[in-house]
Computed example of a mutant assay.
Amino acid sequence: MRRFLRGIAVGIALLGASLAQAFDLEQLGAQLAKPAVVRGPFIQEKHLRALPQPLTSRGQFVLSRAHGLLWQLHSPLQQDYRIGDRGIARRTPQGWQPQPGQDVAAQQSRLFLAVLRGDHAGLADDFELQLSGDAEAWQLSLTPRSRLLQQIFSAIHIQGGALVERIELAETQGDSTLLRLPQSQVDDSLSEAERLALAP
């Protein structure tokens, strides 16, 4: 009987240790928020029901923990966007112009910023979050809570390791967007050009 009880106690202790070591949203948020700057290329595929092939765009992004996200589209056209706590702006010959905040592109941009920053608390305001995996290979599924987001997205799936590597957005109308970040690099500071571009 003692041996049996000791076995149960050991089993409970091991279970408690494994639960304590489980990878959770707090750890994921801390992991993604740690770098001061993350930059790299992106490949975005827009899958439309009416088209047999996806619309593919490519460019570079720069994420600053302090200043926000610089999204530089290189092809099929060139266009720069700045996404931060104050909203979304597009670069024009006259300077940065604020963009409407309620369209699909705006919602996607805010989502990208929150995901890349590891802002799970902000995401939890609008989505139910389900995390699986560990620090080296994790998957996060988001289900919209608000009626507005439910009208846009049916589900969002994010994958990564040390950094976010893939974001897939399924829209309610049947279209989808796949964003891949294949070669992101961590840095301690912005370049002068990046700092000026992200300055409010």
Rank of each mutant, 00 (worst) to 15 (best):
E168P: 11
Q151H: 05
S146W: 00
A162H: 06
E168A: 15
Q150Y: 01
T143F: 01
L131T: 07
E168T: 10
D126T: 08
G133A: 02
A124L: 09
S132M: 04
A121R: 13
H120W: 07
G133D: 06
L131V: 09
E128N: 10
G122A: 12
R147K: 03
F153R: 06
P144A: 10
Q139N: 13
R145E: 13
I156P: 12
I152T: 13
E171D: 06
G160S: 04
F153P: 12
A170D: 14
R147T: 10
D125T: 12
L131P: 10
H120T: 15
I156K: 06
A135N: 04
I158L: 11
A121C: 11
A137H: 12
E136F: 00
F153H: 10
A162M: 06
A114S: 14
G160P: 05
L163S: 06
G122W: 00
R145D: 10
E168C: 09
L148N: 07
Q159E: 15
D126A: 12
I156R: 03
A124Q: 09
G118N: 04
L116I: 11
L140I: 02
L148M: 08
D134I: 00
H157A: 15
S146F: 00
S154Q: 09
G161R: 00
H120M: 15
L148Q: 14
I152R: 03
G122H: 01
S154H: 01
T143W: 00
Q139K: 12
S141A: 14
D119W: 02
W138L: 09
F153L: 10
D119V: 06
I156G: 13
L123F: 05
D125K: 11
G161I: 03
S141N: 08
R147Y: 01
R145S: 10
E165I: 00
L142N: 09
I158F: 02
F153V: 12
